[in-house]
């Protein structure tokens, strides 16, 4: 089944495509297991959801009906995905998946996620919003221009930019939203 998909309309083959495809096949398997577990959990929750017999509602209109049907569909789709992924040949798939997860690109995405999490869950709420924003913008620019950039910029050139942008963003966002649009900020 999966052999058919790469046929006529396949994109231009590029070096590294095979490895990426292998990693994707294995990633599909992991995702499929997550979908099956999620689907099964929702199916159970829908089945055990109160049927509101006391209120004498029609048994075909119970609140759990649609979530139950949907989660069943999710389990089926997850099953097909898993079956397809197991059958597809993916030599070195696990290896390339591990490399993809530990690649430089993944590290960059993780750093963005970490900065976003620290800012949103940690700084906003403990500091005033403008201060939290300034710290976040400053850190973000410095991290990606000096530490994770290729080629790296010297911190001497980035520092003024980072500070300037941090101050301008913090001031502009606070003024525009609180004064002009009368929105309360977190």
């Amino acid at each position: 089944m999966s052999q058919e998909t790469g046929g006529a309309d396949a994109a231009l083959p590029q070096p590294g495509d095979d490895r990426a495809a292998g990693a994707m096949v294995r990633a599909d398997l992991v995702a499929a297991i997550v979908f099956i577990v999620l689907g099964a959990a929702i199916l159970y929750a829908s089945w055990t959801m109160p049927r509101l017999e006391v209120r004498r509602i029609h048994p075909m209109t119970v609140p759990g009906l649609v979530p139950g049907l949907l989660s069943f569909a999710l389990v089926v789709c997850g099953g097909i995905l898993a079956w397809r992924s197991v059958r597809a040949p993916a030599p070195g798939g696990w290896q390339s998946l591990r490399e993809a997860v530990l690649s430089r690109e993944a590290v960059r995405a993780l750093v963005v996620a970490a900065l976003a999490l620290v800012y949103t869950l940690g700084l906003v709420g403990t500091l005033p919003f403008w201060a939290a924003t300034a710290v976040f913008v400053f850190a973000f620019v410095l991290v990606f221009e000096v530490w994770l950039a290729e080629p790296r910029k010297s911190w001497r050139t980035s520092l003024p930019w980072a500070m300037g942008l941090a101050v301008v963003t913090a001031a502009a966002v606070t003024l525009v939203f609180e004064r002009a649009f009368l929105v309360r900020l977190p």
Partner: peptide
């Protein structure tokens, strides 16, 4: 984009907060 994306994320936070004003 290093500079742009930092500002965009701030807008994402404000944008999702502002409509109903809840974290």
């Amino acid at each position: 984009r290093e500079r742009l994306m930092a500002v965009v994320y701030v807008l994402c936070v404000v944008g999702s907060f502002a409509i109903t004003q809840r974290m």
